[in-house]
Design a protein around this nucleic acid. Structure first.
Length: 229
DNA sequence: GCGACAG
DNA sequence: ATCTTGTCGC
C-alpha cells in the first residue's frame, strides 16, 4: 500500500524530539470509526535481535481473524532504545514492511503508545501520519500518565490522565488479567479505539492481530553465517 | 536534584 | 526488546 514519508529517520535524539513537536498538530484524534464496517485489521510489531530489527504486519479479517496477508522487513537497528523515541528505532523497518503490503487495512494496531506519550507522539500516532489511515496504540505497560483502579471484569477501564489531559485508558481485555494501555494514534478517537480492541480480544490479553504480528516478527532465523558459505 | 521511563 | 526454569491453572 502507498505510504507517505514525512521526514528522514536519520536524526539525533534532540532533532527527533523537535520533529515530534512539529508533527503533533497534524494528528486527528476526534473522528470515530464505524466499527461495524471494519473488515480488515492489521497488527504491527518489531522484534530486535543482535542489532537486527524484524518488522511484521499481519492483516486479519473480522470477525473471524483469518490471516489475509503478512508483510515483513529486516534492517540493522538504527537507533538506541530511548523512552519516548521508539518510533525512531522501529519506524525505518516498519516503513519497508508497510511498502510491501498489498491489501489496505481499515485500521492498524501497534505494540506501543498512540498519543499516550509525553509529546503525544507515540509510535502508533507517528506511523499513522505515514499511513494516513486509522491507527491505535496498544501497550503492555505505561509510558506516562496515571490512572485509578480498573474493575476486574473484561471491558472495564480507567482513564489515563497526564497533565490534565485524558490521553487513553487502562483497559481490561480479560477478567482478572493485567490491563493494556490503549490510546488513539491517528484518524480515530478513544471510544472507537476501545471498541476495536475489545472486538479483537476474544480470548487473550493482547489483540489477535498483535499476537500474530509478534509471532511472525520473532520467527526470523538468526543469520548463523559462521564459517562462510 | 530525583524518580520514571512504550519496546 | 531479550535473557531463561520451573510452575500454576484450565
Amino acid at each position: 500500500m502507498r505510504i507517505y514519508p514525512r521526514h528522514s529517520w536519520n536524526v539525533t535524539p534532540t532533532e527527533a524530539v523537535a520533529l515530534q513537536r512539529r508533527l503533533k498538530p497534524e494528528l486527528i484524534t476526534t473522528t470515530p470509526l464505524d466499527l461495524k464496517r471494519i473488515r480488515l485489521v492489521a497488527g504491527v510489531d518489531v522484534s530486535v535481535k543482535n542489532n537486527v530489527s524484524n518488522a511484521a504486519v499481519v492483516v486479519v479479517s473480522l470477525p473471524d481473524f483469518r490471516i489475509v496477508e503478512k508483510a515483513t522487513a529486516e534492517q540493522p537497528t538504527p537507533f538506541p532504545y530511548v523512552p519516548g523515541l521508539l518510533s525512531f528505532r522501529e519506524g525505518p523497518v516498519l516503513e519497508e514492511a508497510f511498502s510491501r503490503l498489498e491489501s489496505e487495512p481499515d485500521v492498524f494496531i501497534f505494540d506501543g503508545m498512540g498519543i499516550a506519550h509525553p509529546r503525544r507522539m507515540g509510535i502508533a500516532a507517528h506511523m499513522g501520519l505515514w499511513l494516513e489511515r486509522p491507527t491505535i496504540g496498544c501497550g503492555k505497560t505505561r509510558l506516562c500518565g496515571s490512572h485509578g483502579d480498573v474493575m476486574e471484569t473484561r471491558g472495564s477501564f480507567a482513564p489515563l490522565m497526564d497533565r490534565g489531559e485524558n490521553i487513553g485508558v487502562a483497559l481490561r481485555t480479560r477478567a482478572r488479567v493485567a490491563p493494556v494501555y490503549i490510546s488513539p494514534g491517528h484518524r480515530t478517537d478513544l471510544g472507537s479505539a476501545i471498541g476495536l480492541i475489545l472486538a479483537c480480544t476474544p480470548r487473550w490479553r493482547l489483540p489477535e492481530p498483535i499476537r500474530l504480528a509478534h509471532k511472525t516478527a520473532g520467527e526470523f532465523t538468526p543469520e548463523t553465517r559462521l564459517f562462510g558459505t
